[in-house]
Amino acid sequence: MIDPVSLGRHLHELRAARGLALSALAGQAGVSVSMLSAIERGEKTPTVVVLSRIADGLGLSLSRLLADLEPGRVIVRRAAEQDHIAEPGGWHRTVLTPVVPGVNFEWIRTTLPPGCDAGAFPAYAPGSHEFVAVESGELCLGVGEEEYVLAAGDSAYFPADAKHSYANRGETPCVYHVAALIMRPRENRMTPPRPA
């Protein structure tokens, strides 16, 4: 398991060796200064995507960034360590997966309140994939120019190198899971942030 304190110390050392201020690396990585600072202090464990952005900002691959940490073969992320993110518009997402060196995979549980449109998101790099499974409620999944209505128990797959969107047009909350393998590089996000 990746120790957050060791990871934070390692990131701080890499940043200092490059003569980068915290704000400079945050800007290059596309993460907030407060997030980067919390990670360096060992107070927050970054998601795979955030860690990959930091690696990009340092000019390293994710696997190279984590090479000296030598995590074990089994990585456990306890419920208390999961990232819970409240998004504008009232929707909520929880990143369930642990950080795995060299793997750009995330499994995310999202709750969209009734009538919530999370917006459109850009195509990711070719070779990216998303699997969606609806736990409860009804999800309107847009992929390219098509829209698919998924009910509780339904699932879908799509190559994530197409513009995509998530919305709940129903009268009850919608809870769904997204398993995403996002290849690098990724384009900048459209607003609002990704709901997956």
Rank of each mutant, 00 (worst) to 15 (best):
K44C: 05
K44T: 00
T45H: 12
P46A: 07
V48M: 03
L51W: 00
S52R: 04
I54S: 01
A55I: 05
G57F: 00
G57Q: 03
G57T: 03
L60D: 00
S61K: 01
L62F: 05
S63P: 05
L65D: 00
L65C: 03
A67H: 12
L69E: 00
E70F: 03
P71Y: 02
R73D: 13
R73V: 13
V74S: 15
V74F: 00
I75P: 05
R77I: 06
R78W: 01
R78V: 11
A79I: 11
A79M: 15
E81D: 15
Q82M: 14
H84P: 12
A86H: 12
E87R: 09
E87M: 15
H92D: 11
T97D: 06
P98N: 04
V99G: 04
V100E: 02
V100M: 00
G102Y: 00
G102P: 02
W107P: 11
I108F: 10
R109W: 08
R109Q: 10
T111P: 05
T111D: 04
L112D: 06
P114W: 04
C116M: 00
C116H: 00
D117G: 09
D117Y: 05
A118T: 01
G119H: 03
G119K: 08
A120Y: 05
F121R: 14
A123S: 08
A125Y: 07
G127N: 03
G127P: 06
H129Q: 14
V132T: 14
A133I: 05
G137Y: 06
E138D: 00
L139T: 05
L141F: 06
E145P: 13
E145Q: 15
E146H: 09
E146N: 07
E147W: 13
E147G: 02
E147I: 08
V149F: 06
A151Y: 10
A151D: 15
A151V: 08
A152I: 12
A152W: 08
A152T: 13
S155R: 13
A156K: 08
A156P: 07
A156F: 11
F158R: 01
F158D: 12
A160V: 05
K163T: 15
H164S: 14
S165R: 03
Y166I: 10
E171F: 06
T172N: 08
